[in-house]
């Protein structure tokens, strides 16, 4: 090849020998400055992998001489933000929510922070938009119906102690009997027709009339004479348009026959005091707060 050089006349440089329509590419050496920069980047690259976490090992990766870690950096940033918020968070933690003014910085901090607490801890059951999931019996928190009360105090209690859990002795508790063991299928059918009538839905008037007797015997103790529900017992209102599990004939039959037993964990041990108050404030201002 050496004796085969194709020297370009104008520049005296040899060419690559590639020929496109009579145009040949000069085979100039790389500029020295460029080459040194290139070598420099190689050295830099190797040094970088030594200084910073880089090479994957079986279970981890090389830590790097500088001991840098993005995770530690994030932890540091979180600690920084928490330190910034410490003062207002302390105010919120010790505040009486019913007297906290909406213009108070602690209130604003609570509503904004409560949204994050909700997304991280509550949205799994209640949905990111807090609209609940009817199929699972997770209540909608946006509407104006509350099983255990929608005042700030009631919401805070429910969040702190939960519902029907084994861990908190103060958890809200009530239990609907399994009427499949008490009533016959026919009687249950009659009761269902009456409950449908209560909420103004299509029903069989004759069966409902018989159901009224059964309802007064079996249900009014908890659900009230007109099916208006009793909050102290967490017994739902039956004469409104809102249903925890569903208001059609089939679902009501299932509810009466087998009962329901929705559980909510107690968040008192899991969340900080200011987080409980924050999520309470957040829930209360979603449109249904009392």
């Amino acid at each position: 090849m050496a004796d085969n050089k194709d020297i370009d006349e104008a520049t005296g440089t040899d060419t690559t020998g590639h020929d496109w329509d009579g145009i040949k590419e000069l085979n100039n050496p790389l500029p020295r400055w460029w080459l040194w920069c290139f070598y420099g980047t190689i050295v830099w690259g190797v040094a970088y992998t030594i200084a910073y976490p880089a090479w994957p090992l079986v279970n981890s990766a090389t830590a790097g001489l500088l001991g840098y870690s993005t995770r530690a950096e994030v932890a540091e940033q979180i600690a920084e933000v928490e330190a910034q918020n410490a003062e207002v968070a302390a105010v919120l933690a010790s505040a009486d929510l019913s007297t906290l003014s909406p213009d108070d910085p602690a209130h604003r901090y609570g509503v904004a922070g409560g949204a994050s607490v909700f997304l991280a801890n509550c949205s799994q059951c209640h949905g990111a938009g807090a609209a609940g999931v009817q199929a699972g019996g997770y209540p909608n928190l946006l509407d104006d119906a509350w099983l255990w009360g929608g005042s700030l105090e009631d919401i805070e209690y429910t969040v702190r102690h939960g519902i029907r859990n084994d861990t908190d002795p103060d958890a809200r508790w009530s239990e609907m009997p399994v009427f499949g063991d008490i009533l016959s299928d026919e009687e249950i059918g009659q009761t269902v027709e009456y409950v449908l009538a209560l909420s103004g839905q299509d029903h069989d008037a004759a069966l409902a009339e018989q159901g009224l007797v059964l309802f007064e015997e079996q249900c009014t103790a908890c659900h009230g004479d007109a099916g208006e529900g009793i909050r102290d017992l967490g017994a739902p209102t039956l004469n409104d348009a809102i249903w925890l599990y569903g208001g059609d004939r089939e679902t009501i039959t299932e509810t009466i026959t087998y009962s329901r037993f929705g559980v909510m964990p107690a968040w008192g041990p899991r969340l900080d005091e200011d987080e409980i108050k924050a999520v309470t404030l957040y829930l209360h201002q979603l449109g249904g707060g009392e």
């Binding site: 949905g127 938009g129 909608n140 509407d143 409104d240 348009a241 449109g287």
Partner: peptide, 18 residues
């Protein structure tokens, strides 16, 4: 418009959008 949820049913059967 708030899209999650698209609407909320209230106890009297009214429909509310946010």
């Amino acid at each position: 418009p708030v899209r999650n949820p698209q609407f909320v049913t209230l106890s009297d059967g009214a429909v509310r959008n946010t």
